[in-house]
Amino acid sequence: MSDRRRRPSWVYDHGVEPDPRFSLANERTFLAWIRTSLALLAGAAAVHAFDLDVSDTVAAWSGGLLALGGLLCALQAWFGWMRTERALREDRPLPSSGVGAILSAAVAVVALVLLVVGSR
């Protein structure tokens, strides 16, 4: 192991090394958020690329909202990973996040709009 300083120091300058199983689980959770972000981005690109039976404005707003959700997920992946890793190092309860609720609401709105407008 090298003596290179571990970054971010906000995480690694606190507490002690946790059980590696917990760190690996945290890593997989990070990746799951990233994949959720990518799925939303794929949805946004699909709304834009496919010839849906909706106006360009509705398609653009839906795509934009999904892309914003993707951005939010990516940020949650990073900040969630950091907060969880630090909590593990300090042996504290794991942090929760409200991003899931916002995300669900955004996806539900887009789905409803596409369903209602598309079925007219």
Partner: peptide
Amino acid sequence: ACALAVAVLLNAVDA
């Protein structure tokens, strides 16, 4: 992931 999200967002704004 953020770079991709910004690309998609710009696409939507441009549309």
